[in-house]
Design a protein around this nucleic acid. Structure first.
Lengths: 224, 224
DNA sequence: TAGATTGTTAATCGATTAACAATC
DNA sequence: TAGATTGTTAATCGATTAACAATC
């Protein structure tokens, strides 16, 4: 990982809920994972969870988890574990992602529809505010609660709705051009579901989904 | 990460294409990332790629990349870079995932259809050999090249087709039961697209997709 | 040749872990 | 109280990086 980010804030001061300098890449990544499991656990009605259970689900060592968390405050109860609800709140605060963040989704095909109608994003404070497509037959159709718009409305929507993230659920051939458009109107985070390699300026972050690669990784440990 | 896996194989011996003991978690994860970018690059017709370009796309430091690769052989050409095609082959060999691996997909809704008709899995040597659903209206329908089957055929298909991975694109409420069924018929890798927390025996690996969490992570560095 | 990029070293820094006292 | 689990320390190990000679 080569982002230029600050140092770890691991020097603990008892009792103090730390205002957090900049998190290291590793800490931020792990906190995100904890948040994923906690969100799922909350949905299933769990009230508390132990570091050991979190370890089982995230494959992060339980000591590491307690260490990561205790750097920011004493969130747990000895003999009991962590309160799921309050830990979700704490981690969101640490990651500074407690707010609502708006997403523009591109592509009203099967994948786009699946994304727009699920609550995988909603559960984490993201809101899909617009669905775009270039297909005139799809424009005007309903996808979940939204009406499909034509790509040409991109700029208007991004500016009016304060869109922070662009999600590309379009064919590879269309991805690069859309990425360029998004960058041009000021979007700095792109989530790419196509298998195109996107060229963007350094200040823009592209995250490419790749379930197959995740599987290869899992498979290695299965085969080895 | 708490898998019990072997040590890094970083002691280099010039010239030798290493038979690779067991890779460390970090090395395996990074090699997978390189593979993702290389596969994309190949699709776009690229012949060679430098460690610096790989670094730009993967956010892994370029020295780290050269180091990771040189542990297994001298794959690059000074002044030129790495041959994309041959590096794909080499990394697949190192990860021992050169073969064909069969997937069973559950859920013939929008997400399931998107997965079955894309080539995100095919590009990495995975083949979706069956699509299942419980909805009698969907059973029998065509999804890409496949006919939707009823869940009750699970065991037969897994045994006949040598299914290694189960992919769950079903509602959360249905996920746990299916996971149990998969474990029972011997599947050891589950890819979970639902937001259910799956309880499985320790020998089973569950990978839960969570694009929203990936976004939170990206957002942190954007906001901070 | 001149420029580019690999392969490798050596030094540093952060991640990981076992162990255990504190305490719910 | 007895059992469970956190918070924290101290020691180890692996990851990261800058730098540069080798070489295409």
């Amino acid at each position: 990982m080569s982002y230029t980010v600050g140092r770890d804030s691991s020097s603990a001061q008892p009792g103090a809920a730390r205002p957090a300098e900049k998190l290291s890449l590793g800490v931020a990544a792990r906190l995100s994972r904890y948040l994923q499991v906690l969100t799922q656990a909350r949905k299933m009605g769990r009230e508390t969870i132990s570091s050991q259970e979190l370890a089982d689900y995230t494959h992060v060592n339980s000591t590491q988890i307690r260490r990561d968390l205790s750097g920011f405050g004493k969130f747990g109860k000895r003999g009991v574990g962590y309160n799921v609800e309050s830990l979700v709140t704490q981690i969101r605060r640490i990651l500074r992602t407690s707010g609502q963040h708006n997403i523009a989704l591109f592509g009203a095909g099967h994948l786009g529809t699946a994304i727009a109608t699920s609550d995988i994003f909603a559960d984490h404070g993201f809101r899909v505010v617009a669905v775009f497509d270039v297909d005139r037959e799809k424009v005007g159709a309903q996808v979940g609660p939204l009406t499909v718009r034509h790509n040409s409305e991109l700029r208007t929507v991004v500016e009016q709705e304060d869109v922070v993230v662009g999600v590309l659920a379009v064919p590879s051939a269309a991805a690069q051009e859309l990425a360029g458009d998004l960058v041009e109107v000021g979007v700095r985070i792109i989530f790419n579901y196509s298998d195109a390699l996107l060229a963007v300026p350094p200040e823009v972050t592209v995250h490419s989904s790749s379930p197959a690669v995740d599987l290869l990784y899992a498979l290695y440990f299965y085969l080895a």
